[in-house]
């Protein structure tokens, strides 16, 4: 977030050739893991997120159980070879925070009160990180939950937006993310039009934030259509 001298936009095009408001190529697959109750792989350009959902299943140790509701647990992790410099395995402060905000991004879409004493667990592994890993992970987690047959109020769709070279853009890649003036992660339940995750850092005024929120909303809706499509395809296959 410090070097603004890097040229990230040339003649209105981004370093990977995209226009400011253009998403990277997106690929989604569901049911990619045989042992998980639900799973998904989502790619945003070179960023690859793999999510597995288990449950609802009984929560152990028992003292963690809630009498009146189930709980959702989410763990986000970057695998050691997902980045330029090897990331030592295990949780760090960043992944602990991201796991928490991802849980809160998904929870509003769940009916946890239907599963007292139980847990639903979602594990998100970032296989390759090239920017926007948390939102790619949320898209994968939401698909994994849906493909596990967990009842949901809506899917959760997410995307990043931000400001590079004084221009507002959508879906930051790794280089853009590292050199951005600001970045913002947004997740929402598209059919309910409600925000479930909102994080921002950088330097923006109110109007810029509202413009970026609109960018995020439009693109989350596009992502939502892709999510529904991949689930429908899979469901047809299974018939």
């Amino acid at each position: 977030m410090n070097n603004k001298n890097i040229q990230l936009l040339v003649n209105g095009k981004r370093i990977d050739g995209r226009l400011p408001e253009q998403l990277r190529p997106i690929e989604m697959k569901v049911g990619v893991l045989s042992r998980a109750d639900g799973s998904a792989e989502v790619r945003f350009g070179n960023t690859i997120a793999l999510a597995a959902a288990y449950g609802p299943r009984e929560l152990f140790p028992r003292f963690l159980q809630e009498e009146e509701t189930g709980i959702l647990r989410v763990r986000y992790a970057m695998v050691p070879f997902s980045v330029d410099e090897r990331k030592s395995p295990g949780s760090d402060r960043r992944s602990i925070e991201l796991s928490k905000v991802m849980r809160l991004a998904l929870e509003p879409a769940m009916f946890l009160e239907d599963f007292p004493k139980a847990t639903i667990d979602v594990f998100v592994d970032i296989i390759q990180a090239d920017g926007s890993t948390r939102v790619t992970g949320i898209n994968a987690a939401s698909l994994a939950l849906a493909s596990a047959g967990v009842h949901m109020k809506d899917l959760v769709a997410a995307c990043s937006v931000g400001k590079i070279n004084n221009t507002l853009v959508v879906d930051l890649n790794g280089i853009e993310d590292n050199n951005s003036e600001s970045d913002m992660a947004v997740a929402m339940m598209p059919s309910k039009n409600e925000i479930t995750l909102l994080q921002m850092d950088g330097e923006l005024d109110k109007e810029e934030i509202l413009t970026l929120l609109n960018f995020a909303r439009e693109n989350c809706k596009k992502i939502y259509e892709l999510q529904k499509q991949v689930l429908k395809e899979k469901y047809k296959e299974g018939e």
Binding site: K192, N193, I195, L197, L198, M200, K206
Partner: peptide, 17 residues
């Protein structure tokens, strides 16, 4: 604005922000 973070288990409407 230099940082924002939504917290809590509820949601926000776009017009809230």
């Amino acid at each position: 604005i230099c940082a924002m973070q939504k917290q809590g288990t509820g949601t926000l409407k776009f017009e809230d922000v």
